[in-house]
Design a protein around this nucleic acid. Structure first.
Lengths: 182, 182
DNA sequence: CGAATATAAGACACTGATGTCGCAGATCAT
DNA sequence: ATGATCTGCGACATCAGTGTCTTATATTCG
C-alpha cells in the first residue's frame, strides 16, 4: 500500500500528464514532473517508463468513462435520458482528463476497453433509430459520430459552460441534426 | 528556379509530411523522407530545419484553404450556396492536407492567416443568423464550431464518401442542428 | 520517538533526432 | 553531349530525452 503522500503525488502526476499531453503529445517526463511539483526521479519511481505513465493515465480516464457510461444506464434508460446523462458525465470526465484517446495508438488492452465503450454508445444511438428518435437514413455511424464530435466541442471549447447546460446544448444540436421528420 | 525533379520531390515531401504528421506529430525527418522516397539529406536541402518544413506545409494547406474560401464567395453568394461550396472544397483540402491546424501553435504569421480564414467563416454563419437560416439563440460561435466539427468528421472519418455527397451530408446535419423553427 | 518509506538531487550510459558537410554519381536542361 | 543541378550515402558533432543508480534528507505513521 502506498503512503498517503506518495498516492497524492501519483494522482497529481497522472492528472498533470493528462493536461500536458493534451497540449503537446511529446512532453518530457521532466516537464510533467515539474508541473506536478515533483522531481523527475519520483515520476520514474511510480511509473517505470513513459509508456507506463501514459498507459496508466489512459486507464484512469477509461475508468472514469466506464463509470459515466454505467451510471447513465445507456442500455436500459429511456433514450433521451440515457443520452443526456451520458453527455453530462462525459463532459466532466473529458475535462478532468483532457487528453485525446487517439494518442492511445496500439496499446492493445486499453484500446479494447475504449472500443467496447464506444460500441455501447453506438448501440444506444441505434436504439434511438429503432425508437424513431433518430433518423435512420444516414450513413452508418454518422449519428453516433456527430454526437461524439459535439461532445468534444462542449468539453474542450466551451469550458465556461457548466456540464449540465453544456449537455443540454449538445443534446439539442444532436437531436435536431439527426431528427426524424415527425 | 527549381529543377522539375527537385520541385516534384519538394511537393512529395510536403504532402508526405502532412500525412505522417497527422498520425504522429513527432515523426522524424528521416521517416518523412523515407516515406516520400528521398534521402534525409534531400529533405534538409529543401527545408533548412524541421520547423521550416512544418511551417511550409502549413503554408501550403493555408494556400489551398484560402483558395477554397475565395472560390466559395462566402461574403457574397447566397448563404446555402456559400456554405455548400465551402464545405465541398474544404473536404478536398482537408483530405489532401490531413494534418490538424492545432499543431501550428505559435507560428505567428501562419496563425494570423488561419484566424483570418476562420473569421470569414464566422461571418458567414452570422449572416446565416441574420437571414434567419440559422438560430441566433445559441452561445456565440456554437453554430460555427458545429459546422467545422462536422466538416472535420466528413474529412477524416468518412473518406469513402466523395466530397460532393459528403458536403451534402454535413450541410444537412448542420442546417438541422442549428435550424430556426420556421 | 523511531522505523519504514518517500523524496530531491545529481551522476551516468544510452539512444535517437537534429543539423552540417563533402563527395561521387545520377539526372535534367539546352 | 556537356555543364549545371540534384541526389544518395556516409561521417560527424550536438543535443535532449530516457532510464538506472546512489545518497543524504524529509515525511509519514505506528
Amino acid at each position: 500500500m502506498l503512503r498517503t503522500d506518495a498516492a497524492r503525488n501519483a494522482d497529481a502526476v497522472l492528472a498533470t500528464a493528462a493536461r500536458l499531453l493534451a497540449e503537446n503529445p511529446s512532453v518530457s517526463m521532466a516537464e510533467i514532473g515539474r508541473a506536478a511539483g515533483v522531481d523527475r526521479s519520483t515520476v520514474y519511481r511510480r511509473f517505470p517508463s513513459r509508456d507506463a505513465l501514459v498507459a496508466a493515465m489512459f486507464e484512469a480516464k477509461l475508468d472514469a468513462a466506464q463509470q459515466a457510461i454505467d451510471e447513465a444506464r445507456v442500455e436500459t434508460a429511456p433514450f433521451a435520458v440515457a443520452v443526456h446523462r451520458f453527455l453530462e458525465e462525459m463532459i466532466r470526465v473529458g475535462r478532468r482528463w483532457p487528453v485525446d484517446m487517439s494518442l492511445m495508438l496500439q496499446d492493445a488492452p486499453s484500446r479494447a476497453r475504449h472500443d467496447e465503450q464506444r460500441t455501447r454508445i453506438e448501440r444506444l444511438v441505434e436504439r434511438g433509430i429503432r425508437d424513431g428518435d433518430v433518423r435512420g437514413d444516414l450513413p452508418t455511424g454518422w449519428a453516433c459520430d456527430v454526437l461524439l464530435a459535439l461532445l468534444d466541442l462542449a468539453i474542450h471549447q466551451y469550458e465556461d459552460i457548466e456540464p449540465g447546460p453544456a449537455a443540454d446544448l449538445v443534446m439539442d444540436s444532436f437531436l435536431n441534426a439527426t431528427a426524424t421528420g415527425r
